[in-house]
Design a protein around this nucleic acid. Sequence first.
DNA 1: GTTAAAGTGGAGGCACGCCTCCACCTTAGC
DNA 2: GCTAAGGTGGAGGCGTGCCTCCACTTTAAC
Lengths: 187, 187
Amino acid sequence: MERTRPQRADARRNYDALLGAAREVFAEKGTEASLEEIARRAGVGIGTLYRNFPARQDLFEAVYVGEVEQLCRLAGEVADRPPWEAMQAWLRAFVGYAATKRAIKEALTMESAMFVSCRADMYAAGQPLFDRAQAAGAVRADVSFDDVLRMVSGITAGSYVDDAQRERVFAMALAGVTATPAAPHPA
Amino acid sequence: MERTRPQRADARRNYDALLGAAREVFAEKGTEASLEEIARRAGVGIGTLYRNFPARQDLFEAVYVGEVEQLCRLAGEVADRPPWEAMQAWLRAFVGYAATKRAIKEALTMESAMFVSCRADMYAAGQPLFDRAQAAGAVRADVSFDDVLRMVSGITAGSYVDDAQRERVFAMALAGVTATPAAPHPA
DNA sequence: GTTAAAGTGGAGGCACGCCTCCACCTTAGC
DNA sequence: GCTAAGGTGGAGGCGTGCCTCCACTTTAAC
């Protein structure tokens, strides 16, 4: 955000390459991914990575901030759609961001100042959509926004046979968000 | 199963200690946990671990086999309860086994012969409960047993504020299993 | 008690990731 | 073109995990 970027052209190119590589690698391997692999993939030396991002946390935060900003923006864009449709669209975006895909579960419990603040922004953006959907009766009354977000992260981080299954499972879980609390006991 | 156990008393003690430690450590750290930590926690040398379990896979399988057997046994025990109640009880047990808790997601896609066979046993045990619940109308018709298992593993592997939230989220997701496919669009 | 078979455990070689440091290369301003 | 400030990248020290190997210890059979 207010991170001072390197000035020289090559420096800036490297900075961007690192960010891109980090986005990819974090998406594939989670927060614990090797920094050397990120540097390799960005085509820069490990020293350059450390010059730009002294700690692993700094790199991950730089990626994460971008994702969160997009998510916040999206919340505004879908606000004029019907409550449940808007909520669903936002949740889909929430799981869609590659950088957070494998790391988002871990991110939900990280403690650094920037994480706490980003999480607050993200929740602030999504919560109104949730409240509206709940008020409209599209979401059961006994769950919180946080519950839904964690459920969705867990499901997304899981492994599936193919994307169709992932989508099917996601839809099934979403149905649980809308369903009435007491599960039916037919038979 | 037909694994030949060490004969000497101390050897057997060590074998059991290793299995117990592995169960704990795999539960906490997933399949990639450090074998040296397992040996440390079992109070034996790393050499002893390798004598009993030449490959990481062997150790994990030894733990996993035990869990799967219990799960298969349980399927028989709950079979006389109402369809949905039985299914639910079994799913709870499925997520409850500590050893697989963090590792189960990974285990679902492992390729070794023993994994494939264990998975087959586990599915064979759970599938009838599922089919019965589906036939009774307690489970929506457009999902498979595999879908549900993967959803449940994903949710279980997630992180939560406390156990109450984990339970709440699990229940919410289960409601999705029973709900009708078409999500309501009120308002 | 003796003894040989069984079992032990940790040192050590290897690989890899973390992070620091600095000799060298690039850039931009002149 | 020249040059110094800015930037680079990888060698190297450290830690940790993997796995092997074998001198030593323990067991149990006699």
